[in-house]
């Protein structure tokens, strides 16, 4: 960033600003912003992998088709293993979440890109969608028996109300931790990268050191981007398992 008065001025949070793309300052409901652009690019990237990549329908897959199939069977197996066979009907929903988070994270790592998943608003909507889906599914599948999730039968009777309270609180904290984990991890990595990059600008000849640090950090961020997408998805599967099979 520009150095206004000679001092070291690093603004690590500026990269997360939501700006209108085509002039103006106001961000209204329908304004085309950088959020819109990068979400659209996410859709394009996912379509490139899953639709264009698999268009050959070859019996012996090409490289791109192989990647699409690996992604498909990876998530399918995860849903089947973690949430159970009857959760397979949620597979399209879960793979949509996974691919959106994965590609939003990865596209956000491109220099000068905007990371949509670093915003609490975005991840909170994702996590709330999971929370509402899970809760509704739990009550639809199990009826009132879903409340047994909070009533631990294996515990001593005196402890059960306390445990029920704890379980209830932890149930409602789930969407909070679910969303803040993803947004926080993304935000943290990008902010730290920005701080290091700012050091590189300020250090003159010794810029090599922060650049090396940023390079290492970038590799870590790549790992974190994939792992956070994986964790977001697998936690969705775990919550879904609770909804489908509430007995502990």
């Amino acid at each position: 960033m520009a150095e206004a008065n000679g001092g070291l001025v690093i603004r690590p949070m500026d990269q997360f600003e939501v700006r209108p793309l085509f002039g103006g300052d106001m961000v209204g409901l329908f304004t085309i912003t950088n959020v819109t652009l990068w979400m659209a690019l996410t859709v394009v990237a996912v379509s490139l992998l899953m639709v264009v990549g698999s268009r050959g329908r070859a019996l012996v897959p090409t490289r791109s088709q192989s990647m699409a199939e690996l992604t498909y069977s990876f998530i399918y197996k995860m849903v089947e293993d973690v949430a159970g066979r009857d959760a397979v009907r949620f597979f399209p929903y879960i793979i949509t979440l996974f691919l959106f988070v994965l590609f939003a994270n990865l596209l956000g790592l491109i220099p000068f890109a905007f990371t949509t998943t670093s915003h609490i608003a975005v991840t909170a909507v994702l996590a709330l969608a999971v929370f509402i889906t899970v809760t509704i599914t739990g009550f639809v599948v199990n009826g009132a028996a879903f409340l047994k999730l909070f009533w631990v039968d294996s515990a001593p009777l005196a402890l059960r109300p306390v445990l029920a309270l704890i379980e209830l609180v932890s149930y409602f904290v789930r969407p909070v931790s679910h969303s803040i984990r993803l947004a926080g991890a993304m935000m943290a990595g990008h902010a730290v990268a920005k701080v290091f990059a700012g050091f590189a600008g300020a250090l003159g000849v010794a810029f090599v050191i922060p650049v090396l640090a940023v390079t290492a950090l970038y590799a870590l961020e790549l790992l974190v981007a994939v792992i956070q997408a994986y964790v977001f998805t697998i936690l969705t599967c775990v919550y879904l398992k609770d909804a489908l099979h509430p007995s502990h």
Binding site: S177, I180, R181, G184, A188, I227, Y230, V231, V238
Partner: peptide
């Protein structure tokens, strides 16, 4: 990974 995610979440809260 689930365990790491839970542990890491708390660190991210402090961040």
């Amino acid at each position: 990974f689930i365990g790491i995610a839970f542990a890491e979440a708390l660190g991210i809260f402090s961040f």
